[in-house]
Amino acid sequence: MKAMEQIAIPAHTAPAPAWWQSFTTGDRLTKVVAYLICTVVGIGYLFPLYWMLTTALKTDVEIFQFPPTLLPAMPQWQNFLASTTYIPFWLYMWNTVVICGLTIIGTVVSCALIAYGFARVRWPGRDLVFMIYLSTIMLPAQVTMIPLYIIFRQIGWYGTMLPLVVPAFFGNALYVFLLRQFLMTIPNELSDAARIDGAGELGIFWRIMVPLLTPALSTVALFTFVGAYRDYLGPLIYLTDQSQWTISLGLKMFQNMYGAQWQLMMAASALTMIPTVVLFFLTQRTFIEGIALTGIKG
């Protein structure tokens, strides 16, 4: 390990008090402190979610009590139902699901192909093109937003979901990078053997790489879903017709209606969060590994 030599640890340190030593040499006290802080911060993290749920179950009178009640006097479960009719909740949800679904398909298919081209086919200029492609991650959306809006308007896509969905079919540099990392680890012998057996590039891609890539592809699909589901600015620009709105635009509408129905707003927010929360619990491992991949290998 070369790294060892570079790390200078002072040889002589003044003797520290015993409690400080037991604290700093990383045993029980450190753990207790870590626990304590994590728990306090954790409660702080959960509090907004708790407050959302408890508000969602209050009456429109109880929400304006001060100091507020910690739990609803009488849980108003019908608030959840009411919130889905106060705004066309299910319509917005459906629109969102359609956009998410198409975005996932486009992203997964295009990114897998692109990553294969960058990772498994040797061609002159490949690494340079890859660097250029990767640098587009840093491009702020604001720079391209206006010209894209103009062109989408000119071809009549303004007011439809196409501007949100179609670009997904042309790849996403971050996910290509992630998939490429994966593909680079697959030994060449596999594809060489297939090549000798007369398989074409597309055959190798489809029959050898895609099955091996499935875990990485599900990570990409998951992140794409979360990204599309959370998106606000895109729909805000392009979806002009209320019947096409996504759930994020719909939630924002609550704010603009007269007489703040906070309990319904919280109920709708809670319902909106359910899909991502459920998905997270079902696919926790994929999520955690994916986050590690996006962050570290950079």
Partner: peptide, 28 residues
């Protein structure tokens, strides 16, 4: 803990910000 810290990151921004709008409310 990991789950608790991560949850806000995957909930739709508007949904969670709307919750903060209520938490930050000056009167109630």
């Amino acid at each position: 803990y990991r789950t608790i810290f991560y949850l806000p990151s995957i909930t739709p921004v508007v949904a969670s910000t709307v919750v903060w709008l209520w938490l930050f409310n000056g009167q109630y």
